[in-house]
């Protein structure tokens, strides 16, 4: 059975005002205009991934990091307060499947993996901050990179 995370979040933070999950009534939808095998695909992870000496994330941090797609596993580290990061520290591909996406690019499953990939620390209380501050910057990044599609991996 899938875990019911909404009531568990309520329990876990029972000392606080109940968190209001975003409830969207409608969903914007842009069709893919070409096969995935021809698409430039950008990737982002909310798992709190950092490359080399990029600054660490902090709580309520809506900044993001650019991760070169040819980063070696030992050049990546993880900081996030909202999930146990041990496995992601051992292998970032758990929440940031950079090596796997490079393999899919090499195998022709996707057209191209957009360089750089992106990461932020998803434990941000304010959905408004994500929507109005973080998301527009990422849209600009993707437009500059001529990304055809966007792959999001939460953590």
């Amino acid at each position: 059975m899938p875990v019911a995370y909404i009531p568990r979040t309520r329990d876990l933070y029972s000392d606080f005002t109940p968190y209001r999950w975003v409830e969207n009534e409608s969903t914007p939808f842009t069709p893919l205009t070409k096969p995935v095998a021809e698409c430039a695909i950008a990737m982002i992870s909310s798992g709190g991934i950092m490359y080399r000496d990029q600054p660490r994330f902090h709580r309520e941090d809506a900044s993001y990091r650019r991760i070169p797609i040819h980063a070696r596993p030992d050049e990546l580290s993880v900081w996030h307060f909202g999930y146990p990061t041990g496995d992601a520290e051992r292998d970032a591909n758990c929440v940031f499947p950079l090596e796997r996406m490079r393999e899919l690019e090499a195998a022709g499953v996707i057209g191209r993996l957009v360089d750089p990939a992106f990461s932020f620390m998803g434990g941000i209380y304010s959905a408004r901050k994500v929507r109005d501050e973080l998301a527009p910057q990422i849209v600009d990044e993707l437009k500059r990179a001529h990304a055809d599609a966007f792959f999001l991996v939460p953590a």
């Binding site: 899938p2 975003v22 914007p28 939808f29 998301a135 849209v139 437009k143 599609a149 939460p154």
Partner: peptide, 25 residues
């Protein structure tokens, strides 16, 4: 992203949250 014309796909392990947020894919 979708409103800016970029199709998206989101992984998830939290089905109830995803049903509430309703991402495009």
């Amino acid at each position: 992203m979708e409103e800016a014309g970029i199709p998206t796909l989101c992984m998830t392990s939290a089905l109830d949250i995803t049903r509430s947020v309703k991402p495009p894919r």
